[in-house]
Simulated scan of single mutants.
Amino acid sequence: MTLLKDPVNGEEGARTPEAGQGEAEKGRAKEGMGGLAKGLAIIEAFGASITRMTVSDAARFADLSRPAARRCLLTLVELGYLAHDGKFFMPLPRMLRLGSAYLSTSSLPQIAQPLLADARDELQESVSLAVLDDGYAVFVARAEAVRIVSTGVKLGGRLPVYCSATGRVLLSDMTEAEIRRHLETVEMRPLTARTRADAESVIEAIQRARTDGYSLSYDELEVGMCAMAVPVRGRTGVIEAAVSVSAFSGRVSVEALEQSFLPVLRRVAQRIERAL
């Protein structure tokens, strides 16, 4: 039995197997590392809406026991990924290394970045590239328009697929049965009065995105915000990413999005596809 010093409360306690750990280990590949999986679950819980967390928060967000969450947090503090003020744990700049590994080795963001910048300059609005990841549209490249108030979406940011134009485009290659199975794993809740948050209306919006070749989101994620997205297809014809533009709905109308913005987004998507 090993003793573990706990910097959170200064107490020393024995490591004991957690409830259900034996069953979990049986179902995991012999080469798998349960501790690493737990730590990554906590890292992934941080985001724009969760900038700090307590031990209890981490246990809830990552679906861990409090002892397991505490050990993971303390390890991340020791490694320089998190700071701890006695109660809250907060990300440190070293956390950026985890995301930069994908951005620096994947050709997709590198190919897209200058093309997104050209589109931004033409539209005078922020233009992004996103991929599908575990129920979210994750932004892997972005050209930000210079404005006093930004639209709030950042590189590495995540948007729920069910109520975002980008997410609907990314799901539009799926069959209805596949979409339903995917939505069953996602918590759908209305973010505004205009949010589509039930399976039938979301599926309808995704199927329309497939037919039209683009998707619109207007005041669904946040009141006053609108977005348009188009697909980027790989060499096999499968959707690999989505190019999107976001703006304040008071400044850009639906007509402007469809008439002026859509041709630009489609041109960018085609240029990315030719380069893949």
Rank of each mutant, 00 (worst) to 15 (best):
G224T: 07
G224H: 07
G224I: 08
G224F: 00
G224E: 04
C226P: 00
A227E: 06
A227I: 00
A227L: 10
A227Q: 08
A227H: 02
M228V: 01
M228N: 03
M228F: 01
A229T: 05
A229M: 09
A229I: 01
A229C: 05
V230F: 07
V230D: 03
V230R: 11
V230Y: 13
P231A: 05
P231F: 08
P231I: 13
R233I: 08
R233M: 01
R233C: 07
R233P: 02
G234H: 10
G234C: 00
R235P: 13
R235H: 15
R235C: 14
T236H: 09
T236G: 14
G237S: 04
G237E: 02
G237F: 11
V238K: 14
V238E: 15
I239C: 15
I239V: 15
I239D: 13
I239H: 02
I239W: 04
E240T: 15
E240F: 11
E240W: 14
E240R: 13
A241V: 07
A241E: 08
A242C: 02
A242G: 07
A242K: 03
V243M: 07
V243S: 07
V243I: 12
S244N: 05
S244Q: 05
S244F: 06
S244I: 09
S244A: 02
V245P: 04
V245R: 12
V245Y: 05
S246R: 15
S246H: 15
S246I: 14
S246F: 11
A247I: 00
A247H: 06
A247R: 01
F248T: 10
F248E: 13
S249V: 12
S249T: 01
G250Q: 00
G250F: 03
R251K: 07
R251L: 04
R251C: 00
V252F: 05
V252D: 06
V252Q: 11
V252I: 09
S253Q: 03
S253C: 09
S253I: 00
S253W: 00
V254W: 08
V254Y: 12
V254Q: 15
V254F: 03
E255H: 11
E255Q: 11
A256I: 08
A256G: 01
A256W: 06
L257I: 01
E258L: 10
E258W: 04
E258D: 13
